[in-house]
Every structure is written in C-alpha cells, then in structure tokens.
C-alpha cells in the first residue's frame, strides 16, 4: 500500500489569503497532497476560528501527519490550542510550521508531494527563515 502524503492546513486571519495560498498550493501539487484552508473569525471578520481550524485539520488529515501554516499571533495560538484538543493518537502528528504562510505552504506541499516525512516537510518550509 502506498504511504499517504503529509497533509497541509493553511490558517490566515484573512479568508482570502487562506484561499489564495491554497490555490497556489494546488497549482503546484494538484491533488497529490491533502489540503485544507481556513480564515476569518467566528463572525466572518479578520481573525481565526478554532472550531474551523479543527475542521480543516480533519479535512486534510493524513496518517503521515499534518503541517499547519499560520500567519500571525492568533492564528498560531488558536492552531496550537486546536492541536491540543485533538484525540491523543492524532495530537502528536500535527505540527505548526514556523514559516511564512504563502511561501511555506507551497514549499511544504511540494516537499510533501514527494512522500517526505512530517519532520522533513516542516523543516524544509522552516528553512525559508534560515
């Protein structure tokens, strides 16, 4: 059986940024990587919504794990909180990636499309900052 590719979740304060970044990922990797995106607060304004982050992780779930790309403060804090709320067997397989959200998502997805491990996908995107 083919091993699943790492999934990608994009979390931005802006629904448009999240959607646009996801479009750029799809253009690069097609459907070879599980992908989900979310943006906006619970009322639809700029911000992030923990419940929808959980849904996005579920939608992009892969047995190989999920990398979450975030833009600013609340996106990171809400994503970290969401990960802690996952079932114990999944919690350890979802990581927040410390990389620019658009570039990081494209690089992470490209790395993931080659079947790389969760750790390698995360590290490759984070090297954008190095």
């Amino acid at each position: 059986m083919r091993v699943a590719n790492v999934g990608i979740v994009i979390v931005s304060h802006s629904p448009k940024v999240a959607e646009g970044a996801a479009d750029m990922v799809r253009q690069m990797v097609g459907d070879s990587v599980p992908l989900a995106h979310t943006g906006g607060d619970p009322d639809g304004g700029l911000g992030t919504d923990l419940a929808r982050i959980l849904e996005a992780i579920e939608a992009a779930w892969s047995e190989a794990g999920v990398v979450v790309l975030v833009d600013l403060g609340g996106a990171e804090t809400n994503s970290e909180m969401a990960i802690e709320m996952l079932d114990e067997d999944r919690r350890g397989r979802v990581v927040v990636c410390n990389a620019p959200v658009v570039e990081g998502a494209v690089i992470a997805a490209t790395e993931a499309s080659g079947g790389s491990s969760l750790e390698l996908v995360k590290r490759t995107a984070e090297e954008l900052y190095a």
Binding site: G47, T48, D49, G74, T77, N78, M81
Partner: peptide
C-alpha cells in the same frame, strides 16, 4: 472563550 473570541486572546483567556 476559546471557541468564540477568534483572536489570540481566546486561547489566552481560555487557558
């Protein structure tokens, strides 16, 4: 608060 605030203060006050 965690589910409704929608910013970093949600997880912070929630915690």
């Amino acid at each position: 608060l965690v589910m409704k605030v929608g910013g970093a203060s949600g997880p912070l006050y929630g915690t």
